[in-house]
């Protein structure tokens, strides 16, 4: 198990290198550059800027310099926000996004898992129908609808919570965005949990465990739960990475200073280094989350361990 984890972590490095290489060139091959604007800069200023950021050199040299910087942990300066480095921007935004994402994740799991379980155990009953309907609606509504609606209801009408904004250490500002972000995830978790449990309670080994007179709750907790969690874990691997790197929509609706906007802003502004920094962050997190999902899967089901060895 440990050896397997070590090998998988080592395997992340070449994947990241490919990711960096491909996105480095694709971003730069896209038409336009960081200093193309509606009102063109004077040629002299532009040349100076390009000289400053090394954009006048051949691509391959720029690539080499970027890699050298990375090796020292330097993500380079932002081309657009001239006072900031990319690392600095991420360091400012990531704590907000991380807090928001992990609260949303916790919320989704704490509500989604029990809902899915209840629905599966009372299959065909009123609760099951209610959970399925809730999941369908939550998945269908985009967060640019639920977000403003929640802000309207709890912020403007009821005055319970702030409509938008962010103050570190003030959980009041966290609640509405976290709920908005958690809703679709929670719905997916509930559906997958329900489906997983329904498959497992019909399995031969669960009937076998019941035939041993172990009691309903012990059979559920010790025999059925772990295998039923497998679909949820597989889904959460990639989902967690996008949760904690922030969501453009939620951060825009609630005016949060997270990293979610950087990827889109960076791409639109041709802020090469910022895009690269976000791609790197997102890629690393995705790979790590998938690794964690695979390790949890192996813990849930010992049959998987042999296959990876």
């Amino acid at each position: 198990m440990l050896g397997y984890a070590a090998r998988r972590i080592a395997g992340i490095v070449p994947v990241l290198l490919i990711l960096i290489t491909v996105s480095f060139f694709v971003v730069r091959l896209a038409p336009g550059g960081p200093f193309d604007q509606a009102r063109p800069l004077p040629p002299r200023t532009r040349a100076e800027l390009e000289q400053l950021y090394g954009l006048n050199r051949p691509l391959i040299v720029q690539y080499w310099h970027y890699l050298q910087g990375l090796a020292h942990g330097d993500l380079g300066p932002s081309f657009k926000m001239h006072d900031d480095t990319v690392a600095g921007l991420i360091a400012q935004g990531l704590p907000v996004s991380l807090t928001l994402g992990s609260s949303a994740l916790a919320l989704a799991l704490l509500i989604g898992v029990p809902l899915g379980l209840w629905a599966a155990l009372g299959r065909g009953g009123a609760l099951d129908h209610a959970v399925c309907a809730f999941a369908a609606v939550s998945l269908a509504l985009p967060s640019f609808v639920t977000g403003p609606f929640l802000a309207l209801a709890f912020g403007l009408w009821l005055h319970w919570l702030p409509v938008a904004g962010w103050q570190a250490g003030e959980p009041r500002y966290l609640i509405l965005p976290a709920v908005t972000l958690a809703l679709p995830v929670c719905a997916s978790v509930a559906r997958l949990m329900r489906g997983g449990m329904l498959d497992v309670i019909e399995a031969s080994f669960v009937r076998s465990a019941r035939a041993r007179g172990l009691g309903r709750w012990r059979v559920l907790r010790h025999h059925a739960l772990r295998p039923a969690l497998v679909p949820v874990v597989s889904y959460l691997g990639p989902a967690v990475a996008s949760l904690v790197t922030g969501s453009l929509v939620v951060e825009t609706v609630f005016e949060l200073p997270g990293t979610g906007r950087y990827l889109v802003q960076g791409a639109l502004n041709r802020d090469y280094t910022l895009v690269m920094g976000m791609v790197l962050l997102y890629g690393t997190l995705t790979l790590l989350c998938n690794l964690a999902a695979d390790l949890i899967h192996a813990w849930l089901d010992p049959r998987v361990r042999g296959e990876h060895a």
Partner: peptide, 28 residues
């Protein structure tokens, strides 16, 4: 009731099912 049956199943009645591959809990 279920609780009374649970005291009988496995204690006073033992069952062996057809498919030994699927009748044991895989993670225990």
């Amino acid at each position: 009731p279920e609780r009374a049956l649970d005291r009988i199943r496995g204690a006073r009645v033992g069952l062996v099912f057809q498919d030994p591959m699927a009748s044991l809990t895989p993670h225990l």
